[in-house]
Design a protein around this nucleic acid. Structure first.
Lengths: 111, 111
DNA sequence: TCTTTATATAAGTAATTTATTATATAACGA
DNA sequence: TCGTTATATAATAAATTACTTATATAAAGA
């Protein structure tokens, strides 16, 4: 799944995660998104481009402003990837537990 | 949560995700991890360092080899972050649905 | 003790990222 | 049409990443 690369990379920046958190509460323009941060407007536009290329947000054009909103599908993919991963290793630990338990029983049974 | 940065960054590389997938099946040495990839041993050691600094794996020293294994806590944190995020925006969409439904009712009621 | 094996570290390099300031574009409103 | 507003793009620079090959370290075994 090659689209996981840009999505995880996009999430690795705290400014971008804060932008996403803001967008989780509703659409916002570049101005609104830039205000809380100590960075320039072009820098925010760049972060938005990264998020959009990662498939995490989308843009609507409304006159001279371009409000952004979340696009949830990609986060579902990340969620699924992590979920499968967790499942595999939890299964592994479960098997390990069973193994240790069996060894315990053999210990008690032997002699 | 500053430790999210290196963890998400670590996951953005497909080689590192493949390493984690391998480790989900059990401990492995640098040699074993390097074999399936077309990159040098030092490059694999570097990836492992990135994963370890992100808190995703840990190292055990056994003679001359250093088998790596998963350290699940950090993935739980990522899982939780994504989960909270999903919850917020699903709540938002839920509210939006309610709003649209109310608007629908008003439409039907009016006139 | 010497050699081999497993791994880490160093030095060098190319590509990518993230910011800045300055400027371009395009819609809106007087 | 002209000035203002919202946003994007360009040019540049600094920092970071991800490799490579060469070398260092440290334990194991003859």
């Amino acid at each position: 799944m090659p689209q996981l690369d840009p999505a995880f990379a996009a999430l690795s920046d705290p400014t971008r995660r804060a932008i996403l958190a803001r967008l989780a509460e509703g659409e916002a323009t570049v101005q609104e998104l830039a205000r809380p941060f100590a960075i320039s407007q072009p820098a925010v536009s760049r972060h938005l481009k990264v998020l959009e290329e990662a498939g995490l947000i989308e843009t609507r054009i409304e006159g001279t402003s371009r409000p952004r909103r979340l696009k949830p599908e990609r986060v579902e993919e990340l969620w699924d990837w992590l979920g499968r991963f967790r499942a595999i290793w939890e299964e592994r630990y479960r098997r390990l537990d069973v193994l240790l338990e069996e060894m315990g029983r053999e210990d008690s049974a032997e002699k």
